[in-house]
């Protein structure tokens, strides 16, 4: 991580309630420019709720939250234009070609035609997929699809990209190539906010937060967390925290 100081996410007492149920209970955290921030937690801990708020899709119940410098209550459209998003479940359109997917998302982000063409060329070259530009997405292997989806999520140079379990089910070699891409992206100053169930990937983050039952129970570098819990791996940190309840 480079030593940027600018905060790309600022969350102060983020609360989200659904009736009596508190999905997010006073979350406090900042994420810096160029940081790889791991957002971990058990199923149902409240990660997805928080991500939806940070992406400008849902309104919080209370709290002061800014993403890319914009307010999550009043400037949600601006947030959406300054972030990228990809997940394992929703990524690209299977019945469009590779190039058409770039064209489509570039259009959604209101990029100029020339810029879309330039970025498409740039990423296809980088992924060594220049020959596959006109291939329909459904015939592209999963690993490549995930790399394409990630490239498309950052083609408009967002300030931050949200990756929701981006490597689920991907083979171990591709999983590592994907993380090489994440590293490079962060190195170029785009903040990466990532969730994963692979605990070895938690070790690759600059800092990780671990949510348990709607609260952030730990937030630090992987090294400090392991030291604090006196364990050897992030897997053990995670299990210690999530089992506590």
């Amino acid at each position: 991580m480079r030593n940027y100081t600018e905060n790309i996410i600022e969350a102060e007492n983020l609360v989200k309630k659904f009736g009596d149920f508190t999905a997010n209970d006073r979350l406090n955290f900042q994420v810096k420019k160029g940081e790889i921030f791991g957002f971990l937690g058990a199923n149902g801990a409240g990660k997805t709720t928080a991500i939806k708020i940070l992406c400008g899709l849902w309104l919080p119940t209370s709290g002061n939250i800014k993403v890319a410098g914009f307010d999550v209550y009043k400037q949600r459209e601006k947030i959406k234009r300054n972030i990228g998003y990809m997940s394992q479940k929703f990524s690209l359109y299977e019945d469009l070609t590779v190039k058409e997917n770039f064209r489509f998302y570039g259009g959604i982000y209101r990029m100029r035609s020339g810029d879309i063409r330039e970025k498409t060329g740039f990423f296809l070259k980088k992924l060594d997929l220049e020959k596959s530009g006109d291939t329909v997405l459904s015939s592209i292997p999963l690993g490549w699809k995930q790399k394409l989806a990630f490239s498309i999520a950052i083609m408009h140079d967002p300030k931050i990209v949200f990756l929701d379990e981006p490597t689920g089910g991907v083979d171990p070699v591709t999983r590592r190539q994907f993380w090489d891409m994440i590293y490079e992206t962060a190195h170029n100053g785009i903040t990466v906010f990532v969730t994963t169930h692979y605990m070895d990937e938690a070790e690759y983050c600059d800092r990780v937060s671990i949510m348990v039952d709607g609260k952030i129970e730990a937030l630090d570098t992987p090294g400090n967390l392991k030291e604090k819990f006196r364990v050897e791996s992030m897997n053990e940190v995670f299990i210690k925290l999530a089992r506590k309840k």
Partner: peptide, 13 residues
């Protein structure tokens, strides 16, 4: 068939 895919580390154990 993949009973633990997408499941967190604690539930997997």
């Amino acid at each position: 068939d993949e009973p633990t895919t997408g499941v967190d580390a604690v539930s997997r154990q």
